[in-house]
């Protein structure tokens, strides 16, 4: 795995940034670091304030990945922006529900619904 390899596809839909995970499994420490760097860069470097994270491809997610999402949420809130999560399959949603992170994050079923909400 090449360092710095993109793990997230970025797309602009009007003033909203849609970041779609490429990997099926967000487990491996190295991947999680790269994903974290890429996502944090959206806020810290690019100054983006409206971000949607699209989980359509994600089949596995570990608690280390949750940690990165929490930090991202914190950064976005600090920048007075808004973060939404969408297209999370039921198994993965359960991971959010068990850890009560479904109450921290704004989660919608589809990307369209997330876009409408901004």
């Amino acid at each position: 795995m090449a360092a710095g390899h993109r793990r997230v596809d970025i797309e602009e839909v009007s003033d909203v940034t849609v970041a779609k995970f490429i990997d099926k499994k967000i487990l491996d420490e190295g991947n999680i670091q790269i994903i974290g760097t890429q996502l944090f860069g959206l806020v810290d470097e690019d100054g983006r304030k409206k971000i949607i994270l699209d989980f359509s491809n994600v089949e596995y997610l570990s608690s280390a990945a949750l940690g990165k999402l929490i930090t991202l949420d914190k950064k976005v809130k600090k920048a007075k922006g808004k973060l939404k999560l969408c297209s999370i399959r039921p198994d993965i949603y359960e991971v959010f529900a068990i850890t009560r992170l479904n109450q921290l994050f704004d989660i919608t079923e589809t990307q369209e619904a997330a876009l409408e909400g901004f």
């Binding site: 608690s63 280390a64 949750l66 940690g67 929490i70 914190k74 068990i98 850890t99 992170l101 921290l104």
Partner: peptide, 10 residues
């Protein structure tokens, strides 16, 4: 909620 620990065990 923002602390990284404990979630794995849970």
């Amino acid at each position: 909620l923002e602390r990284p620990c404990g979630r794995g065990i849970m």
